[in-house]
Design a protein around this nucleic acid. Structure first.
Lengths: 126, 126
DNA sequence: TAAAGTGTATTAGATAAATAGTACACTAAC
DNA sequence: GTTAGTGTACTATTTATCTAATACACTTTA
């Protein structure tokens, strides 16, 4: 599983986002036990402290529940997961529109460009 | 003019992007003299060294030309500016699609959501 | 009981980024 | 010539992040 961490943002923040994505997109399923902090840190080639910090931040969203001395599980509250997914999508949408408008594109142009991009097959490997 | 710098990324990188945007969207027009490093630093509430670093990086794109001991001007090469604008738009589009797909949305759903968001009037102040 | 595996906490060191303060060489305007 | 305003360079300090290396309390399992 690729983590693809780069150095232009704090690593713990990148890990936090990736964990959120994996939960809302179903890679980690509701009620499922997560790998241990040490294992995930090794998988991501990162210090355990860094992974721990990412989880500490992730706790607050309620998407994972820590069962001390046993591990962590993904919440079984599918509505909470769906709400997080929706919230992340809205954030993506708004920042996308804001950035495109700042570049000088009208909403019509944005829609047109989105349709073009969606109809292009080879835009997944950029 | 609002700079809206936050701490989750290097400040010089954020400034660099904002300067690029201001050039491609016409806030700073072709051939126009830019404010001095010291003035811009004061305007952005940032150390002059940080603003200087942003400009040093910006030089490489060719969007601004430094005339030593006199100041900096925006390039008059409108094709270069247009190319930069297009490149930034493509980058925005691709990362947007990548992120939305990772969240589990199909291209059809993305297009639908984009249309909804564009038709919503109050999404500029989020 | 003993061992292995959890989350968690702590201390120390390394690195990058931002700030602060100062200085230099040059140009334009007075 | 003098002064003000450019870009640029330099050192030192502070802060945040990441790493490294332990250590502890607890649960599960053998």
């Amino acid at each position: 599983m690729a983590w693809e961490l780069n150095s232009d943002r704090p690593i713990y923040a990148q890990i936090l986002e990736k964990l959120q994505v994996r939960i809302v997109c179903g890679t980690y399923k509701p009620g499922e036990w997560l790998p241990s902090v040490r294992d995930l840190a090794a998988e991501a080639s990162v210090n355990p402290n860094t992974m721990q910090r990412a989880f500490t931040e992730l706790e607050r969203s309620g998407l994972v529940i820590t069962q001390r001395n046993m591990g962590r599980v993904v919440t079984q509250d599918v509505q909470l997961i769906e709400a997080a997914k929706h919230r992340m999508a809205v954030t993506q949408m708004n920042s996308f529109f804001e950035n495109m408008r700042q570049l000088g594109y009208s909403d019509g142009e944005i829609i047109s460009l989105v349709n073009q991009t969606a109809n292009t097959a080879d835009n997944t490997n950029t």
